[in-house]
Computed example of a mutant assay.
Amino acid sequence: MLADLWPLYRLALVTPRLELRLPREDELAALAVLAGRGVHPPGERPFLTPWTDGGPEDRARSVLRGHWQRLAAWDEAAWALGLGVFRRGSGEPIGLVAAWASDFAVVREVATWSWLGLEFHSRGYGTEARAALLTLAFDHLGASAALSAVFRDNHASQAVSRKLGYAHDGITVDARDGEALVSDRLRLTADRWRTVDHPAVTVTGLAACRSWFGL
């Protein structure tokens, strides 16, 4: 089985409404098509990397390339875990979330990003999916902090971060479409995480791949 050679395929994070796991090829294709239909309203650009530029096929292929690149480049010293987000019961794909880290065994910090298909916005799925990633990071991998950098005009991501307890940790300045744009740098500590209400999350399949995270 593929999971015997690549045990990350056994890892699953289950919340009251969602299941997060590595997508199989047909599921990956469905996620790519979903991204092609749109992950944010027209006229917005909530991501620094302009992967949502171009037409539906360009966006879909960018999802495929990104997923394959994360798998191929995996290393315990510098890993990026990208998980498909599926609705429980139906298995309907609704988006993708990722956590990544460098020298995690020493630094104990992760960063995250995510996108949801436009039709699944404003239902609380983004908060639930990020809470699942944070549960994995803090409660099962022993992270000391989770980081995020969010454009100030990305109101949805800002709201999710506030709800989950992130605190302001400075700013970064990047070039976006020819102008300097300020992002808020946010940090959530393990101690703060333990005081925040969040959905219950069940993590399975981690034992077989703990060493893949440098543990």
Rank of each mutant, 00 (worst) to 15 (best):
G43F: 12
S122H: 15
V85L: 14
R10F: 11
D177E: 08
F104G: 08
A190D: 05
P16A: 05
S90H: 09
R88V: 07
A35D: 01
F138T: 09
S102T: 15
L13Q: 03
L64R: 10
R45G: 01
V203Y: 09
P50A: 07
W68D: 11
D197E: 10
R24S: 00
D197W: 08
A145K: 07
A200Q: 12
G126D: 02
E27K: 02
L188S: 01
D75G: 06
A98Y: 04
L2V: 14
L164F: 04
A159F: 04
A175D: 05
D4V: 14
D26Y: 05
G205Y: 03
T189N: 02
Y125Q: 09
H40C: 02
S183W: 14
D169M: 00
R123Q: 11
A101S: 14
L147T: 01
R37W: 13
F213Q: 01
V150R: 02
A159D: 01
L116R: 07
G142L: 15
V107Q: 07
T195G: 00
L116S: 06
V201E: 02
V39R: 11
G214M: 12
G54M: 10
F213W: 08
A146L: 03
L83K: 01
A167K: 01
A111Q: 15
V97K: 12
S90F: 13
D191T: 11
A159K: 04
L118C: 08
A35W: 02
H140D: 03
S62E: 11
R37H: 08
E27W: 01
R130P: 00
G36S: 12
L71I: 15
D184T: 13
S183I: 08
A156W: 07
P93Y: 05
R65V: 15
R21P: 00
P23N: 04
V33T: 15
T127D: 06
A77M: 09
C209N: 09
G170T: 12
D169R: 06
A101F: 07
G84K: 03
V106K: 13
L13R: 05
F120Q: 03
G124R: 00
R24I: 10
D139Q: 03
E76L: 06
G170W: 09
P93V: 08
G66I: 15
D174Y: 11
G43S: 01
L34E: 14
A3D: 03
D197I: 04
V203H: 04
R108A: 11
V173F: 04
E57A: 06
W212R: 03
L136R: 09
G55I: 05
R152N: 00
L181G: 00
L28I: 07
L96H: 09
G126K: 09
A190K: 06
S183Y: 14
W79Q: 00
A132H: 01
T127M: 10
A99Q: 08
A99I: 15
H67T: 08
L64A: 14
L147F: 07
A180K: 00
L206K: 09
G55L: 02
A105D: 04
L64S: 06
A131E: 02
S183M: 14
W115G: 04
V203C: 12
R210N: 10
W51F: 12
R88T: 10
L2S: 05
F138S: 01
G124S: 03
N154M: 06
E119F: 12
